[in-house]
Design a protein around this nucleic acid. Structure first.
Lengths: 348, 348
DNA sequence: TTGTAGGCGTTATCAT
DNA sequence: ATGATAACGCCTACAA
């Protein structure tokens, strides 16, 4: 099967390999109609398929980019990947997908492997802990784009959610609907997880701006699994929150489990909003208002940026692209304090 | 950066390229401790990274497999992909992911491209419409595994859900909980979509086995978007079903939208079960009982099979692997007919 | 308009 | 124990 090489085609068509090569690269300029046809026939007859590997070796370009993600199972990741793939498809590029599982060592190994495989660029959802690795890449002007998180200390293109805007959106949403005792719910806070910190900071800032202060115990940080218990504890204490801002979809699940287990009533006793749109938002009762990341646009931009970096040597300085979150308003907010409810039937 | 080649290392270490090559391939057998060390140092000093492309050209093997899926956004796909990636990682393989969007032409193009890129094997969630393409591969003993669907007329390894068992599971579940008027809900039926047809057939068989007959109007086929309306119509007719078997997660969404819009009460007036576990199953009220596909095991098996095909030339005849669905029982079934409820807190 | 020759970075086969 | 040399399949001057 794959034994058919350019030489075979050349022989059958009675021309030299070079001529076949010309033909394949569509440099028909000085080729006689005659030979062109003969070559075409030969290719057809032999079922010849060029060997891209050989071409790559010569041209030092593989039409392949590597994507390293820290969690393939996140919907956000899937959606961004989808957009990246689509964009690559347009340019005839392929995507090698690697899952680091948020393990910096694996991440490093993958970077090495992908470089060895001569990928033309790298899109990374970074663990955030491989500063040195990435700094090298940047220094060597290797096409690189970070998504979702960035790596502190590395100046590279980054495609991120505007986390401050998202947090502010959440606070605004609660406040304008009359919810005042707002708590933020997040996975454990770690300094190298930039979005998490930004969302918290954004939350603090937004609260401050509205003249509300954030009690420390209203910053509820726990792994999603432990969340129901942690929330129960918090709700046993005085001044229970009446609004929870879940920092991502996983956290939201923890919150909803808590809601279900305690039977707390949802628009009345407690309002919820979260970052990351979830597929069941509008079939849940009450429908869930969420803050969606424009995942498709983000993936597209990430791909576009690697391509731009590949195409230009005059390395313009790295840029950070902040994408605006979108409020997916779905809840009837109907409270005792007189505020009238409203509804918005946006579909994701 | 990438300019460092084996020749450079060889020069710096004062040996020949061959020796360096030996070293890299760990054929230390006849190598002096001395030179080994010198090479190691040279490599270190130059920051040499072998060029896998060159190796591939020589060895005719790329340590890469291609995966073509018809819908990257399906959770099932994501999960299987995840398992595949993990399995590949263990063997030092990489995965090129391609999304055909269920378009046979794109699918064909991808097969060609991946072959040109010399992937060592192919895992495909097929559109089902490229019989000829795949038949060629099989004839040439190219490592190939189908997942989720199979291609009629192509004898290749396939990793599938046991759709009959799944349908039977659904019927049993309803029947043993006292629901008798069972309808099946599915996307439009098309003959080349094997799982869909199998699920319907399995449903018919299971009903027959229990002495219940399937009225044609209890086979509700519609696109998820139109489903709420279609269901409303059906429920306006006499003998409305009291149990709906949704054939997949997308269909389930349509059903749940219908439930929400009509306010039909869920364990009492209507029971639901569906294929594909969904993340919100246990936070929904009432909790949803689902029939889960063992996606992880399926992905793992698919990868294992490509590897086995790669490793053995004595091509054993293609096998079809049917994976048993798992009942994720979460609903309190509590009906007026005296049946006692039960609960099962399995986590996905 | 087409052919020749050299090279891309490795590996493999022999020598030495 | 190590080194020359020829592939691998394609591309690209340059020559004819």
């Amino acid at each position: 099967m794959k034994k058919v090489t350019m030489a075979d085609v050349a022989k059958l068509a009675n021309v030299s390999k070079s001529t076949v090569s010309q033909y394949l690269n569509k440099r028909y300029e000085y080729m006689s109609e005659e030979t062109r046809k003969r070559i075409a026939e030969a290719i057809e007859e032999l079922g010849y398929q060029p060997n891209v590997i050989a071409r790559s070796l010569k041209q030092k370009t593989t039409a392949t980019i590597g994507v390293i993600v820290f969690n393939m199972l996140h919907m956000m990741t899937t959606q961004v990947l989808h957009a990246i793939e689509e964009e690559c498809q347009k340019r005839g590029f392929q995507v090698i997908v690697c899952n680091s599982g948020d393990d910096p060592d694996k991440e490093k190994t993958y970077v090495d492997t992908l470089l060895a495989k001569q990928v033309d660029g790298l899109i990374v959802f970074p663990t955030g802990k491989n500063e040195d690795v990435y700094r090298c890449l940047v220094e060597e002007r290797f096409p690189l784009v970070f998504v979702d998180r960035m790596v502190p200390g590395v100046e590279a293109d980054s495609v991120l959610l505007d986390n401050f805007a998202a947090a502010e959106m959440a606070v605004d949403y609660f406040a304008s609907n009359g919810y005042g005792r707002i708590a933020i719910v997040t996975p454990p806070l770690v300094p190298y997880n930039v979005p998490r910190m930004e969302r918290l900071e954004g939350f603090r800032a937004a609260m401050r701006k509205r003249g509300m202060d954030v009690e420390e115990r209203n910053i509820i940080a726990a792994d999603p699994g432990a969340l129901p218990e942690v929330l129960k504890q918090r709700f046993a204490e005085p001044k229970r929150p009446n609004a929870l801002f879940a920092i991502n979809d996983l956290t939201l699940m923890g919150v909803l489990r808590f809601v279900k287990e305690t039977g707390i009533r949802m628009p009345d006793e407690l309002a919820i909003i979260n970052i990351d749109d979830v597929p069941f938002a509008d079939i849940y009762t009450p429908a869930l208002t969420t803050i969606a990341q424009p995942t498709f646009a983000m993936g597209k931009k990430a791909a576009e940026r690697v391509f731009e970096q590949m195409d230009s040597n005059h390395a313009d300085s790295p840029r950070v692209f902040r994408f605006s979150p979108a409020l997916m308003e779905r809840t009837w907010i109907k409270r005792g304090n007189g505020k009238e409810g409203r509804r918005n039937d946006e579909d994701s």
